[in-house]
Design a protein around this nucleic acid. Sequence first.
DNA 1: TTCTTAGTTTACTATTTAGCTAATTAGCAA
DNA 2: TTGCTAATTAGCTAAATAGTAAACTAAGAA
Lengths: 113, 113
Amino acid sequence: MQTETDALSLTFAALADPTRRAMLARLAQGPAAVKELPNPYNLSSPSISKHLKVLERAGLIERGREAQWRPAQLQPAPLKDVSDWLEVYRKNWEANFDRLEEYLRKIQKDKGI
Amino acid sequence: MQTETDALSLTFAALADPTRRAMLARLAQGPAAVKELPNPYNLSSPSISKHLKVLERAGLIERGREAQWRPAQLQPAPLKDVSDWLEVYRKNWEANFDRLEEYLRKIQKDKGI
DNA sequence: TTCTTAGTTTACTATTTAGCTAATTAGCAA
DNA sequence: TTGCTAATTAGCTAAATAGTAAACTAAGAA
């Protein structure tokens, strides 16, 4: 159901690309012009523009205008939404860790006998 | 660069669909057979099978076999990876909240004069 | 005015994704 | 055996995604 595309789906889809995540990592430090953004796969300018549009549509960045530059700025609200969504599952991975820990304690004890 | 597809990209892509997120929400409560999973958009069985394959490829579930059922079980490790990835950005949304809080405090104070 | 840098838009192609129906596999039950 | 339920695989279509080159816009500099 990638048609009505709810906000969370848009956000996750935007995050599912290493170029876009690299951009966000840079923008976490502060606003930057397009040419200042990392381009780890040496994509063409139009491709970079498209990636920025994807981030913008997901609400993860906002664009400005300063002389001939169009700086991008991180908007972290959708990331907080992801964090909130994740909370429900935290008990699952912490429980798993507990079971692993318990197992490790057990084999350690067995070895000690 | 959706070709080599690193683990994190696979995970985010798998999460970018409401049907798959509904499945995970159910599986957070414990394993379930395919027919027990939520199907909020009334998709056909083959479509559901495909969604499960996407979750499996991302390492978010593991499949089993019990008589004619193929139960799915949540594997939360990739979700923990997402949580770890998010941590870098936490300061960004908390800083934003701080600025909002500060602003709200300010207008409250101004009203009080 | 002309040049240069920054960036976007247009138009196109290739690949991936998501859905369907029909057919198939697997196990249990009568 | 035959039939029933659970689920997957095969084969197809439509739509979305990601990339490119070429053309264009916008602002500052010579």
